[in-house]
Measured scan of single mutants.
Amino acid sequence: ETFPLDVLVNTAAEDLPRGVDPSRKENFLSDEDFKAVFGMTRSAFANLPLWKQQNLKKEKGLF
């Protein structure tokens, strides 16, 4: 299941849709939104070091 970017960005855990893991908001973006937000594919993002993934998520309001 995916959700629009505005539902996930800068949203407190208690305000997220049911079933969304607040530590993994990026997994609930569509592939198109994911690429638009991070400028890379999911596989490229997954290959980044964890610290870099976290920094990007913070920068984009998805942490």
Rank of each mutant, 00 (worst) to 15 (best):
A44Q: 13
L8M: 05
N55R: 13
T2F: 15
G19A: 10
A44C: 10
M40T: 01
R24S: 09
L56D: 01
P22F: 02
L29D: 01
A44S: 10
A13E: 14
D33V: 08
V37S: 03
S23K: 13
A36G: 08
K35A: 14
E14R: 10
D6N: 12
V20R: 04
L5Q: 05
L56E: 02
R42D: 00
D31E: 12
P4F: 03
F34Y: 02
E1P: 14
A46K: 12
K57V: 07
F34C: 01
G19R: 07
A36D: 10
D21V: 05
K58M: 11
V20I: 10
L50H: 12
F3W: 15
S30E: 02
E1R: 10
A12I: 09
M40L: 06
F28D: 04
V7H: 07
P22D: 06
F28C: 07
A12P: 14
F3R: 04
G19I: 11
E32L: 10
L16D: 06
A13T: 14
A12G: 09
K58W: 12
L62N: 02
F63S: 15
K57G: 01
K58E: 11
D21L: 04
G39Y: 04
A44F: 09
E32Q: 11
E59I: 11
S30Y: 02
W51G: 07
E59Y: 06
L8P: 03
S43Q: 14
D33H: 04
E32F: 10
F38K: 00
A46N: 12
A44P: 00
R18Q: 14
N47S: 14
V37L: 13
G61S: 03
F45W: 07
N47C: 15
F3Q: 06
L29Y: 02
L48C: 02
S30A: 07
F63C: 15
E1L: 15
L56V: 04
P17M: 04
R24E: 06
R18P: 15
V7M: 14
E1D: 12
P17F: 02
D15Y: 08
V37H: 05
A13S: 12
L56Q: 01
K52G: 05
A44W: 06
V9A: 10
A44Y: 09
A12S: 13
S23P: 04
L48Y: 03
R18S: 15
N10P: 05
G61E: 03
N55K: 14
K57Q: 03
D33R: 01
L48E: 02
P4N: 06
R18E: 15
K25A: 08
W51F: 09
F38G: 00
E1S: 13
T41F: 04
F38T: 01
A36H: 12
